[in-house]
């Protein structure tokens, strides 16, 4: 498999414009309802974040707009719109965002279809261990998951352009394609790993994620022309205590496979994409009565 921008041998895939499937103009309630059905949605949000801190350590020690502003904003979206039917036990927002594009620490794009955390809680913990310098992250997740009031855990990605994009001047370069997990067969997933040191992780560890075999039943979408006031929300991982944990082959695919791709409609000379990702871990309790 070639991971690259010019992967002409990849299968030709239909990618649907998801905008006509949601209300226009976007509404929070309709976005939430789409998220329930598809595992992803375009959510309207005017963030008050001014500085997109990408230094996790600094953010943890000194705080940042991400800890002080973005984190409460995202928690409110999760509690009030994405998961209002559940008792949400905890929302763990990182103290920094993963930034992409010029002058960011990651001046490259996630080009290549993948899902980041695997299928089972073990997969997820493996991934955490690959980056965890404290050595405690996986244990803490297991401890939280095992607590009586918790029924499941989810990771939700908030993917947003930050290039000063407006309706008149929207994001045109390298949009994100997302795949509806309901149409992904477990048997078409490929369990993969990266040497953790190649992605800023720990020596001797491996990450844990998935690649995907092409199938004509898969349904791909994207949101053309995003602005700074829109955030693409997608589920990256989800397991429940009710799942049969012993067999990862038996788990349904719930995380959204995704990739950056070259949009043939991008005008020549469009500036490179500037965007952020914020991956939020949510421990979920019982359904509300």
């Amino acid at each position: 498999v070639v991971y690259g921008d010019e992967d002409k041998d990849a299968p030709i895939t239909k990618i649907r414009d998801a905008r006509p499937h949601q209300d226009s103009p976007l509404t929070e309630d309709d976005a939430a309802s789409f998220f329930h059905k598809k595992g992803f949605c375009l959510f309207p949000q005017n963030t008050k974040v001014k500085r997109w801190n990408e230094d996790y350590l600094k953010g943890m020690v000194f705080g940042s707009d991400i800890t002080k502003v973005y984190s409460p904003e995202l928690e409110s979206i999760i509690r009030n719109y994405l998961l209002p039917e559940y008792h949400v036990i905890s929302v763990d927002c990182p103290p920094a965002v993963l930034r992409r594009g010029p002058s960011s620490r990651n001046n490259f794009y996630g080009t290549g279809v993948h899902q980041d955390y695997g299928l089972s809680l073990e997969d997820y913990k493996n991934n955490l261990k690959a980056y965890d310098f404290s050595g405690q992250a996986a244990k803490e997740v297991q401890k939280k998951f095992d607590s009586d009031q918790v029924c499941g855990v989810m990771v939700i990605n908030f993917w947003r352009p930050i290039g000063g994009y407006t309706k008149a001047n929207p994001l045109r370069s390298k949009p994100l394609a997302v795949c509806d997990p309901a149409f992904v067969d477990n048997g078409d997933t490929v369990h993969t790993a990266l040497d953790a040191t190649s992605v800023g992780g720990l020596k001797g560890k491996q990450t844990d994620q998935m690649a995907l075999k092409y199938s004509p039943q898969q349904q791909w979408y994207y949101y053309p022309n995003m602005t700074d006031d829109e955030v693409l929300v997608f589920k990256q991982f989800e397991v429940w205590k009710d799942d049969s944990m012993d067999k990862r082959e038996a788990l349904p695919v719930r995380g959204v496979f995704h990739t950056a791709f070259v949009d043939p409609n991008t005008p020549e000379g469009s500036p490179p994409r500037q965007s952020t990702e914020c991956r939020v871990q949510v421990f979920i309790g019982k359904r509300k009565e």
């Binding site: 498999v1 070639v2 991971y3 690259g4 921008d5 992967d7 002409k8 041998d9 990849a10 299968p11 030709i12 895939t13 239909k14 990618i15 649907r16 414009d17 905008r19 006509p20 226009s24 080009t111 290549g112 279809v113 993948h114 394609a177 490929v190 690649a211 995907l212 075999k213 092409y214 199938s215 791909w220 994207y222 053309p224 990739t259 791709f261 070259v262 949009d263 043939p264 409609n265």
Partner: peptide, 19 residues
């Protein structure tokens, strides 16, 4: 409004297996 549906080469998708 018109949709912007596409047909593109999605990078990194494994080709279907033929046997």
């Amino acid at each position: 409004s018109s949709t912007l549906d596409l047909e593109v080469n999605l990078p990194g998708l494994f080709r279907p297996e033929f046997s």
